[in-house]
């Protein structure tokens, strides 16, 4: 497991302070709380969970856009959690990000060839103009955009095309890890499939490693090798894709999976409907954070925090008292 590990995250924490006036004690939103996982080279790990569970925060922590409060981010054998801004900058070359909203993630006043050339100008300032343009041209064609359009501005493109431009920008530095933060959730279903297929093809061609953040389980099933399920800042289950989708262990994973619509009206399925809202992250429930909504909650669940344990023979890790 250690040999070809590209990214390893251990005990990562990020608490956002919220203050309620001068004299009350400071409270924290535990956006990411003691998260550990690792990704092997060439694989895709998907992070799934409801909105507000901390999956996007986790992505930004790994990319260094926000600083972690505690824990390790080991990328290619180097711990980046405590690294200086200068050291981070050199690691941004092999680690790129694709954003959710292709309308907002591209600078509105730059031509797309300038947008895509930005990373080159930052990391390879010695390149000549011609070399840079040749690279931009080839990467645009790989991502399915005609070079003929490179003089246009982002607002002249459709959502799917813009996401392709975003992917081209992430790819031009030949990164090893791509953090994709809900890359298809802003797109139409037909375009989603195109973008997912493009991502898969690129992964095969360039041995890319993906950290794929999504709330859409059908998308996750299509693209992942491993899946990590997050709930209120914690990973509750992490397992290979087949294990998650065929034999989910954690009650939360089961509930999530049962909410995925099946395109067959005759097929009847027992759907687990969770009670109530996701609890306030500033004041999460004691013990297992899921016990307030869990259909199988026991008395121990409200007292003790469950630890990650391997269950079954498929490297399936679950944090639940049912399997302790």
């Amino acid at each position: 497991m250690v040999d070809n590990e590209l990214l390893k995250v251990k005990g990562l924490k990020k608490y956002f302070p919220i203050s309620n006036g001068w004299f009350s004690s400071k409270e924290y939103v535990k956006a990411v709380d003691e998260v550990s996982f690792s990704v092997k080279k060439g694989e895709t790990l998907s992070l799934v969970g409801e909105s507000g569970c901390g999956k996007s925060t986790l992505g930004r922590l790994i990319n260094g856009l926000i600083k972690a409060d505690a824990g390790d981010i080991v990328f290619k054998g180097d711990n980046l959690a405590e690294a200086s801004e200068t050291k981070w900058r050199s690691y941004r070359k092999p680690m790129q990000m694709i954003f959710q909203d292709p309308y907002a993630s591209l600078s509105p006043r730059m031509k797309i060839k300038e947008i895509i050339a930005e990373p080159l100008k930052i990391h390879d300032p010695s390149l000549s103009r011609e070399e840079r343009e040749a690279k931009v041209k080839s990467i645009l064609e790989i991502c399915g955009i005609d070079y003929y359009h490179s003089d246009k501005y982002p607002h002249e493109f459709s959502g799917g095309q813009r996401q392709r431009i975003g992917i081209a920008r992430a790819l031009i530095l030949q990164p090893e890890l791509i953090i994709a933060d809900e890359p298809v959730s802003a797109l139409d279903v037909s375009i989603q499939a195109q973008i997912l297929n493009l991502l898969k093809k690129l992964q095969k061609d360039y041995q890319l490693t993906y950290l794929f953040i999504s709330h859409d389980l059908s998308v996750v099933e299509h693209i992942s090798d491993h899946v990590a399920v997050m709930y209120l800042g914690n990973i509750v289950e992490i397992a290979p894709r087949e294990a998650i989708f065929e034999d989910p262990k954690h009650p939360y994973t089961k509930a999530l999976l049962s909410s995925v619509p099946i395109p067959d009206p005759k097929l009847k399925r027992e759907s687990i409907i969770l009670k109530g809202e996701i609890p306030n992250a500033a004041n999460p429930p004691k013990g297992c954070k899921f016990h307030t909504r869990c259909p199988l909650a026991m008395s121990i669940c409200s007292k003790e925090i469950p630890i990650m344990k391997t269950v079954g023979d498929k490297q399936q890790m679950v944090a639940c008292h049912l399997y302790q």
């Binding site: 070359k93 790129q96 907002a104 993630s105 930052i122 990391h123």
Partner: peptide, 17 residues
Amino acid sequence: EMLFIEAEKSIGAKTNR
């Protein structure tokens, strides 16, 4: 606070840029 500024940071752009 806009996303494209965050995108620039994630690319590794320096502050003055």
